[in-house]
Design a protein around this nucleic acid. Structure first.
Length: 442
DNA sequence: GCGATCAGCT
DNA sequence: CACAGCTGATCGC
């Protein structure tokens, strides 16, 4: 797509239409309540959650698109000045509530932007997504696929979420006298909690703001902010730590469950022998173990036994491979299904970018870019504003790590800062309680 | 004083 | 390694 026409999850000036895939913070960076750059398209569920995240947002700029149905936009081609019709179809991305992929079709070509997505082969919901995508494509070939390449490496492999959800239920059921702490984010993993709640007929504690979100999503009488009603609590991931678990265990026996596509590894601390991680390539080692059942090896030995730290796990923590991103095999299946002429990853994190072409380039459709069919979607022709970020990460790896190392070297001076500014107070108030036991509204 | 951005941490 | 995100500090308006 030509520069200056559309932007997806990218909020700098200069596009005619903006598309939001989902409400996770890394996709809304740059969005604010004062938005005034143009119409912003999103899914119905995202629209429902939107005001809570961006109070005061000019609602007339929000355009809600029904999932699975096509909408036509009339845009001006910046180069020719002529009107160009673009048809857009949001498709369920099975990532978090409201998350969608966008399929763009028109005179300018056909482009699919996945956003973050999970492509499970098994569930009925996944089958529906497949049908929806097939219908939306209407036989067209995808010229350019923008792909969630988070786990685009053969070493990333994990079971479908249903399977892992049952494993979590089993873990909880096998600890009938324990309190349970589950680390979650501001959005996502609702299905896991629902499954636990249904299977064990138990309510689940969430922090007050998260309860509001649950209510907006239509879940009533399942979640609570009263700790007295349940032994299972879903807490913000950032408040989930070894210290937290150890602290809680001085009061009541408690285990922590961390659902993630990546192993939750105790960060190696040089002088803390109890929680030290192995210096071996931990995740690879663990990864091969997990392929068998998807649950981390959990050490049941006594606290002081050496083995409890050798694996990089903590005695109270279960790490389960519940991921809202596609694993490698699923990405592979997805590319086979879409058969794009060309593609590139949309996720380039701190230190690396996994190029889907490296492992999965051979799965593309017959019309490879060198045959010119992908011409309309050469990468600098999309929204250029997306590009610099990614190019920077691909090419600027060493630069970044150098900067990071510099940062690491700098000494933290202000250890005893008591000063609290207004911003942080407001932020904290907005966020609600962490794991403090607050009996709020229910 | 406020918002945006960075550094640090999980 | 890094899922996604909070917190505190700082800077410019």
């Amino acid at each position: 797509m030509e520069k200056g026409m559309i932007s997806v999850d990218q909020w700098s000036e200069g596009s005619q239409a903006y598309f939001l895939t989902h409400l996770h913070a890394d996709h809304t960076k740059g969005l604010s309540s004062k938005w005034n750059k143009g119409p912003l398209f999103c899914s119905p569920i995202t629209a429902k959650l939107f005001p809570a995240k961006f109070p005061g947002f000019k609602f007339s700029l929000l355009r809600v698109l029904e999932i699975g149905s096509s909408h036509t936009l009339s845009l001006a081609s910046p180069s020719t000045g002529l009107e160009a019709m673009v048809q857009v179809t949001p498709i369920d991305a099975h990532h978090c509530p409201g998350a969608v992929m966008y399929l763009f079709r028109g005179e300018l070509g056909c482009m699919l932007y996945t956003g973050d997505f999970r492509w499970e082969a098994t569930s009925a919901r996944a089958e529906l997504g497949k049908t929806m995508l097939r219908n939306a494509l209407g036989g067209d070939r995808v010229d350019f696929l923008y792909l969630d390449n988070t786990y685009c490496n053969p070493s990333y492999s994990f079971p479908p979420r249903e399977v892992v959800a049952q494993q979590v239920v089993d873990i909880i059921a096998s600890h009938p006298d324990h309190d349970i702490i589950i680390g979650i984010d501001t959005l996502g993993k609702e299905d896991l909690l629902l499954h636990i709640s249904r299977a064990l007929r138990i309510k689940i504690w969430v922090w007050p703001e998260r309860l509001q979100t649950m209510h907006l999503l239509g879940f009533h009488n399942i979640f609570t902010t009263k700790t007295s009603l349940t032994r299972v609590r879903a807490v913000p991931r950032y408040s989930f730590s070894v210290d937290t678990l150890e602290g809680l265990n001085t009061m009541r026996p408690t285990i922590g469950i961390m659902p993630s596509g990546l192993p939750w590894v105790v960060r190696p601390l040089e002088e803390n022998c109890d929680s030290i991680g192995s210096s071996l390539p931990i995740w690879h080692h663990i990864g091969s173990k997990w392929r068998t059942n998807g649950v981390a090896h959990v050490d049941r030995s006594q606290p002081n036994e050496k083995s409890s730290s050798a694996q990089g796990f903590h005695r109270y923590i279960y790490s389960v491979m519940y991921s809202d991103h596609s694993c490698f095999g699923e990405i592979q299946e997805f590319i086979k299904f879409v058969q794009p002429s060309n593609m590139r990853g949309i996720v380039s994190s701190s230190s690396c970018y996994i190029d889907p072409l490296y492992y999965l380039g051979h799965l593309r459709g017959a019309n490879q870019p060198h045959l010119q069919s992908g011409k309309k979607f050469q990468r600098r022709e999309l929204d250029e504003s997306v590009d610099p970020v990614q190019t920077k990460s691909v090419l600027g790896c060493s630069k970044y790590t150098e900067a990071k190392r510099k940062r690491e070297r700098s000494v933290k001076v202000n250890c005893l800062s008591v000063h609290t500014n207004r911003v942080s107070v407001l932020r904290r108030v907005r966020r609600g309680a962490k794991i403090v036991e607050i009996d709020g509204l229910d």
